[in-house]
Simulated assay, not measured.
Amino acid sequence: MTDEILRAASALLDTTLAEPTDLGGSPRSTVLRCTAGDGESVVVKAYRDEPEALRCFTAEAAGLALGAGAGPKLLAVDTDFPLLVMEDLGAAPSLADALLGDSADKAREALLAWARAYGRLAAESVGREEEFAALRSRYDRGEQQWDIDHWIHKAVDGLPAVLDSLGVAAPDGLMAEISPVIELTRFPVYSPGDICPDNNLLFPDRVRMLDFEGAEYHSVFVDAVYTRMPFSSCWCVFRLPQGIQASIEDTYRSEVVKGHAELLDDEVWREGMRLGMLAWTVDATTALTPRVIEEDRPLHRTRRPVPSLRQLLRYRWEILLSEVSGEVPELPAVAETMRRLLAATERWDVPSMPLYPAFLSTDLG
């Protein structure tokens, strides 16, 4: 297969690619660093010929083209193979490396750079939906079905069965309080999709983003809430000091309001962030709980340190409970559900979520 990829990519670039190094792809793709005829290296990413991989190929090609400069430069695309050739960004530490390291200052600066980069990309993308749709059509094999079984719909639909598996009775009115997340579409922005710490390389002048397989337009709050939870769908999850959490949220918001001025309204921002937290918490509950009913496991198969899945779930429930509870709870059924989930899983006997390793010696909040 490697030889076929090299031949196709070489023909596409009109040069000879050699010395392939496997960078580790996924079940959907093969990723190779290759040396071109001029001695420069490029990265070739080839996709499997099956529906999910083809959706990722189309999204990544269109996403890299739209978000030029945010990620690696898109050098060439072969829709028939399918594969794409990208600039080789080389070696650089990731945001995950900074957070799992031993310097609070470096981690804080990396977080602020990450928040600034995504806020700026989101703001600059406002109003470019038609351009992105045209790019997606250009690279689409015609076999994709977009926006089918959206993750929020699947999460909401699956919640009752998951609650039942834990012996948690849903309070009256729960689904009515949760249902607004299905309409989490206001203030659309472009996003690479997977904005987790390991997909962000830290260079002296900027953050460069990797993995555009999920590139799409979605509500700004789907990404913005990563600053508060933190990192809603990722494996690199620990607790942030409160002051730093507030700083990265403010940094992201200060950039994205340049594209959506309505987000300057504190009430609009608060409501959207709450919906985003609710959506991602329901998603984690639905997706992860069935995997740990019988036995806990690490959040990532190989990376260390990581929390366990049970730790993550309880952490998500605790954060959402603190967000929606109060003297006059705005979402009383959601708050009660979080209490019941935490009570039902006390028997898991897992430690509370610790700080990110970089902040362990300096709790700033």
Results as ranks from 00 to 15, higher is better:
140 D>F: 04
363 D>Q: 03
72 P>M: 06
193 G>I: 15
211 D>E: 14
117 A>L: 08
205 D>G: 08
270 R>F: 05
25 G>W: 01
179 S>E: 12
271 E>L: 00
253 R>Y: 08
278 L>P: 01
334 V>I: 04
95 L>I: 07
185 T>L: 12
106 K>P: 05
328 V>I: 08
85 V>P: 03
224 A>P: 13
87 E>G: 13
180 P>E: 07
354 P>H: 09
187 F>L: 12
160 P>N: 06
227 T>V: 02
263 L>N: 09
235 W>Q: 06
278 L>K: 00
206 R>W: 02
322 S>Q: 14
332 P>I: 01
352 S>P: 03
40 E>A: 14
241 P>A: 06
89 L>K: 05
276 G>W: 00
100 L>R: 14
47 Y>S: 02
216 E>L: 13
9 A>R: 05
163 L>W: 08
239 R>E: 15
141 R>C: 08
361 S>E: 09
200 N>Y: 09
348 W>T: 13
228 R>D: 12
239 R>C: 04
100 L>Q: 07
347 R>M: 11
156 V>A: 07
30 T>K: 06
116 R>K: 09
19 E>A: 07
224 A>N: 04
342 L>E: 12
84 L>W: 08
234 C>G: 14
74 L>V: 01
227 T>P: 08
71 G>D: 10
66 L>H: 00
51 P>F: 07
115 A>L: 05
321 L>F: 03
28 R>I: 00
